[in-house]
Amino acid sequence: MKSRDTKNRKPLTCEDTVGPYYPVQFLDDDRMDLTVLHPGLAHRPKGQQIVLKGRVFDINRKLATGVVLEFWQADANGMMRGPHNIGSPALDPAFDGFARCRVDGKYCLKTIMPGELAPEVAGEAARAPFINITIFSDGFSRLVTQAFFEGQSRNAIDPVLQAAPEPVQSRLVATRLNEELDGVPVYVFDIVLAGDGETPFFNDEPILEDQA
């Protein structure tokens, strides 16, 4: 055990399942359209508008009902909001990058293509464009994965995408459809929670485990 482990003294509260009854009214519907910060605003974020849509399957390839999905991404400049860049003029003020929904296995997010995340914090690698997806559901506590985009040159050197074994890497890459939706490119990213074609998920538990 390294010294950092002992600094983290308090035992963490256990994650628990969200259950089947996450209150629908906690979610604002407009949280699934990041191309406008608020429906009443005329301002639009910079960048190429895209649609990211897909389905969430269980082990039997049935749609998983009552799942809560959260999305988190950088703006078109590759700036992802964090405590280290509060007030940075490089942040797009018309974009906050956080969306969520509770769906019966099908989601559709209107957003902008995230920029390539530039290293802002010491030791960080440059990243291919990605959208982080967190999944809460009855049956497990929390899963996280990241969706990449077909045709992005940096995919080949992205450390997270490359952390997945080669045979399953393509499951982390959203494919572009031939047709568009209202003139906006559409990407498809299906999530398979378990079994054949299972989506790779990541262990983002903090500190104790991965610093040991």
Partner: peptide, 25 residues
């Protein structure tokens, strides 16, 4: 539901150079 929805493969480790971005801030 747990049987139907829990991934069977081990979770992948996140490279140290890319830890930012896994939880919304």
């Amino acid at each position: 539901t747990s049987d139907e929805r829990t991934p069977r493969s081990p979770l992948l480790a996140i490279p140290k150079t890319a830890r930012r971005g896994f939880a919304p801030w």
